[in-house]
């Protein structure tokens, strides 16, 4: 498992020694900061690596699973379930996941096929809902996640096809809908950040997406051009780079085969 940093065969360095994928991973890792002792639910390669990285660095209290139904005492490398070894700290069959998310002891980072300016997310289908032009994976757990605990989104290819004026099916509930709900039922609704291959986005006081930081080498115009609605880039700083320890953990421990470079190119 001892792969040296020079052994990387994929991914172009950004001029700082870190690839774009690695910048995305540490940006995602920062999203888990201060979440506390909760289950990190991460969908996608970059989010999964980021949760395990957070667990190994700034957030040792975070709870990570093996992709099946075990919580692991130590963050396992990508793709390795409890069956491959490691210390199991808890057993979590699917039936418990719904109780956990209802309890609020969970933080999700999911993908989106469409997302609008309020963070309404679609992963269900494109086109007419009865006879969609394209059936996607379905609403899955997005409606329940977004009304129960913090939810972030990870977008591997920031584009106008994904950042759309409106979404065809609201799966993950956006800020506009949560705010106009007339009772206290949406009090746990908590959209955090949207991390893409270009930038880190947050929400402004009106609940609109706004750029918080641009990844090194990305301009505000790049993000505006790749976003299908008007987006405020005026407050954008620069996304931090991974430090040496983070890079080593990503490359030698968490993702030695470089799966991250297949999810984020460039």
């Amino acid at each position: 498992m001892n792969v040296s940093i020079d052994d990387r065969t994929t991914g172009e360095p950004t001029g700082t020694g870190a690839t774009r994928a690695e910048v995305c991973i540490t940006a995602c890792s920062d999203a888990w900061r201060d979440s506390g002792e909760v289950l990190a639910h991460a969908v996608g390669i970059v989010p999964m690596i980021s949760a395990r990285l957070a667990r190994l660095t700034h957030s040792p209290e975070l709870v990570v699973n093996d992709g099946e139904c075990f919580f692991m005492a130590e963050a396992p490398p990508l793709g390795e379930t409890a069956a491959a070894g490691g210390v199991v700290e808890s057993w979590v069959p699917f039936r418990l996941i719904f109780d956990i998310l209802n309890s609020g002891k969970r933080h999700s980072m999911m993908g989106a096929s469409q997302i609008d300016r309020y963070g309404n997310q679609n992963i269900s289908s494109i086109g007419d809902r009865r006879t969609p032009t394209r059936q996607l994976i379905g609403v899955r757990g997005a409606p329940g996640n977004t009304v129960n605990h913090r939810t972030d989104y990870w977008i591997a290819h920031h584009s106008t096809r994904i950042f759309t004026e409106s979404v065809d099916v609201v799966c993950g509930v956006g800020n506009d809908r949560a705010r106009r709900h007339p009772t206290q039922s949406l009090r746990f609704h908590d959209l955090g950040v949207v991390i893409t291959d270009l930038a880190v986005l947050g929400y402004d006081p009106e609940g609109h997406l706004a750029v918080r930081s641009l990844h090194p080498g990305v301009t505000a115009a790049d993000v505006r051009d790749a976003t299908g609605f008007e987006i405020d880039t005026s407050g954008a700083g620069t996304t931090r780079l991974p430090d040496a320890r983070e890079l080593e953990l990503i490359r030698t421990v968490l993702d030695p085969t470089g799966m991250r470079e297949r999810e984020v190119r460039g």
Binding site: S124, R129, V139, V147, N148, C171, A178, H181, L186
Partner: peptide, 13 residues
């Protein structure tokens, strides 16, 4: 009862 589904299009669908 459940909170899941509130304000999502699961209700409309």
């Amino acid at each position: 009862p459940t909170r899941a589904g509130l304000e999502s299009d699961v209700m409309a669908m």
